[in-house]
Simulated scan of single mutants.
Amino acid sequence: MTDTAQGVRGALRRELGGFLRAHRELLAPADVGLPRTPRRRTSGLRREEVAALSGVSVAWYTWLEQGRVDTSRQVLDAVARALRMDGAAREHALALAGFAPEGPGGPNGLGGPDASDALATPHAVAVNHQHLLDSWPTSPALLLGPALDLLAWNTAYATLWPDPAAVPADRRNLLLLLTGDPHHQRLLPAWQPLAMDLYRHFRTRADRAPLSARFGQLTARLRAERPDLEEWWDCRSVGEFAPRTMELAFSDGQLARYGVTLLLTPEPRGGAVLVQTPAH
């Protein structure tokens, strides 16, 4: 194994440990059928309780949370059940441990040990997808990078939303725009549910690319620009973006509803196409 691969493996173990610890701290003893004792100082489960529920030793589970050991799929499944993980969280834990289905770019196509920080050639990828975006003349559409950076858009998008071409290049990121741009928030008053689900989608990819500078830079910028959303940035919840309907409010008082779908692109460590379809 190369030094780079060893570094990625170690970083993924630490991400897995932090993910397990976050889930353990969210559970109350009553959630798993245990009594709350008077001497308990925290609301979360103790490590020894998770170890007992999972059928492993306390020392081994402690090492797992510390990112010091690898694990088998069978044992990780037992830990996930003990921590009452839902399907998305369980799949994420398995991916961090290296058990996700292998795609062309690593687990779930999100990149192997030698993956770079971004799409290999963002400009070329944008050009390749522009004809697809333009094929939707009435459906605003965006091509997004792995960290939800805006790589390309169609005329319908630039007409409905603030034109990305007029946005400074370093701010062309969907999370930055939804959480920090007044124009986006006026057009979409209920922006929080959409932004939070996109952040969960982002977290899924960030955890699986722990050495990526772009994910780290964006997380730091979100924390700096919106410290009031600290509970978002500290959240370890993950999940794939689910289609939904959103309502836009125009300056003339008119309202419009759009269905929103996120289509994953096939490139290794690729991003996604966000399509907004007028809803009647």
Rank of each mutant, 00 (worst) to 15 (best):
P122N: 14
H123Q: 14
H123E: 15
A124Q: 14
V125S: 14
V125Y: 05
A126S: 11
N128K: 09
H129T: 00
H129P: 00
Q130P: 04
H131Y: 03
L132Q: 06
L133F: 06
L133G: 11
S135W: 01
W136S: 09
W136V: 03
T138S: 15
T138F: 14
S139Q: 14
P140V: 01
P140K: 02
P140C: 09
A141T: 10
A141R: 08
A141I: 01
A141Q: 08
L143Q: 14
L143K: 12
L144D: 10
L144S: 13
A147W: 05
L148C: 09
D149G: 10
L150S: 09
L150W: 09
L151P: 08
A152G: 05
W153I: 02
W153K: 05
N154V: 06
T155W: 01
A156L: 06
Y157T: 04
A158R: 12
T159E: 15
T159C: 07
T159A: 15
T159N: 13
T159M: 04
L160W: 06
P162L: 00
P162C: 05
D163K: 02
D163C: 11
D163W: 00
P164T: 04
A165I: 05
A165E: 13
A165R: 12
A166W: 02
A166V: 02
A169F: 05
A169W: 02
A169K: 11
D170R: 13
N173T: 03
N173H: 10
L175K: 08
L176P: 09
T179C: 14
T179G: 08
T179V: 09
D181S: 15
P182Y: 00
P182S: 04
H183V: 12
H184T: 04
H184Q: 13
Q185P: 10
Q185L: 07
R186I: 01
R186G: 02
R186W: 10
P189Y: 02
P189D: 11
A190T: 05
A190K: 06
W191K: 02
W191P: 07
Q192S: 13
L194Y: 03
A195W: 03
D197I: 00
D197R: 15
L198Y: 00
Y199N: 10
Y199A: 08
R200S: 04
R200M: 01
R200L: 05
R200Q: 14
F202L: 09
F202G: 03
F202I: 00
R203V: 00
R205F: 02
A206R: 15
R208E: 07
A209K: 15
P210W: 03
L211D: 10
L211A: 08
L211I: 11
A213K: 15
F215V: 05
G216C: 07
G216Y: 04
L218V: 01
T219A: 12
R221I: 01
R221S: 13
L222F: 01
A224W: 00
P227N: 09
P227D: 13
P227I: 00
D228W: 06
L229N: 05
L229H: 14
E231T: 13
C235V: 00
S237I: 00
S237C: 11
V238W: 05
V238R: 14
G239V: 06
G239Y: 07
G239F: 11
E240F: 01
E240L: 08
F241S: 11
F241D: 12
F241W: 03
